[in-house]
Design a protein around this nucleic acid. Structure first.
Length: 273
DNA sequence: AAACGCAGCAACCGCCTCTAT
DNA sequence: TATAGAGGCGGTTGCTGCGTT
């Protein structure tokens, strides 16, 4: 027997929100906040809606800090990078893009970015069929070794979608996933690297690392097969750099329907160490 | 002008985790 | 410790508008 639904769907309104409903919800939240209970909120606010629907409407549309409009190239880079590193964890990715919602990021990925990446794959002569080439694709994205980026200011600002080798390929997961947690040591090829916010990613800052905060829930929700589960429970740190890079290129291919590579393959294709 | 196809996006569904009891 | 309810999330659906034929 499954869970009881959160509300009687036959009695609540569904579908697109009217401006009046938006105003009602907005006004109520402005005056009372969520009071910690979305389920009872619609009744209190005088809305004939499911509480989850109210929550979604607020988070994805009515929140005052929502950023609209097209995604910038920097945002593309962040999405590509994080998708490759952590997969389709849209809420985590969105948390690194101020004003963007997980729904926005997810829609953007599904409708645009994925196609762009497929186009890149096509340009690299990657045959996007499961039958022919899991290994072929992995090869294509992990080799040959890309040229080192000479700038002392970290990676160039080229789009991850633009070149023959996506910019995001220059991102590394610094932890060795095979290491037991107790001996976990962030690996970084730059002694002067320090954490920075992903929102700074793509800047010319000398720092070329960033970290992704993970809640306990997020960590525990990782699939058991994911070596990310071995990471520190609150911070999964990533570094980008121009030397000694570990490539995780095959990871994002799972979005194209390919198997997620084994954890140890995260570190394949690196060079310089 | 109508029909059709496609892209974009808002919204829903159902599962998982957390938390209170 | 077990259980139920709520929150949160990712996957998916379906509506709408626009472009093409």
């Amino acid at each position: 027997m499954g869970r009881a639904p959160c509300c009687d769907k036959s009695k609540v309104k569904r579908g697109p929100w009217s401006p009046e409903e938006d105003a009602t919800l907005k006004n109520y939240l402005h005056e009372h906040g969520t009071t910690g209970n979305w389920i009872t909120l619609p009744t209190k606010a005088g809305l004939n809606r499911c509480g989850k629907s109210c929550r979604l409407r607020w988070l994805n549309y009515l929140r005052p800090d929502i950023k609209r409009g097209t995604f910038t190239e920097e945002e593309d880079n962040v999405i590509c990078t994080l998708f490759r590193s952590i997969g389709s964890r849209w809420s985590v990715i969105a948390s690194q893009l101020p004003g963007r919602t997980d729904n926005d990021v997810k829609n953007y990925w599904n409708t645009k970015l994925k196609k762009k990446l497929l186009a890149v794959a096509a340009r690299n002569n990657i045959v996007a069929t499961r039958q022919t080439c899991d290994h072929n694709i992995a090869d294509q994205f992990s080799a040959p070794v890309p040229p080192k980026i000479e700038t002392p200011h970290g990676p160039e600002t080229s789009s991850c979608l633009g070149g023959t080798l996506p910019y995001a390929a220059n991102i590394s997961l610094v932890h060795s996933f095979d290491q037991p947690k107790e001996t976990f040591e962030p690996w970084c090829n730059h002694s002067d690297s320090k954490p920075m916010e992903v929102s700074d990613f793509g800047s010319t800052s000398e720092s070329n690392s960033f970290s992704i905060p993970l809640s306990h829930q997020e960590v525990s929700s990782l699939p058991s097969s994911s070596s990310l589960a071995q990471l520190d429970q609150y911070h999964c740190s990533l570094w980008s750099g121009h030397e000694g890079i570990n490539y995780v290129n095959s990871e994002f291919l799972m979005d194209f329907g390919f198997e997620t590579p084994p954890a140890d393959q995260f570190l394949l294709g690196g060079y310089g160490h």
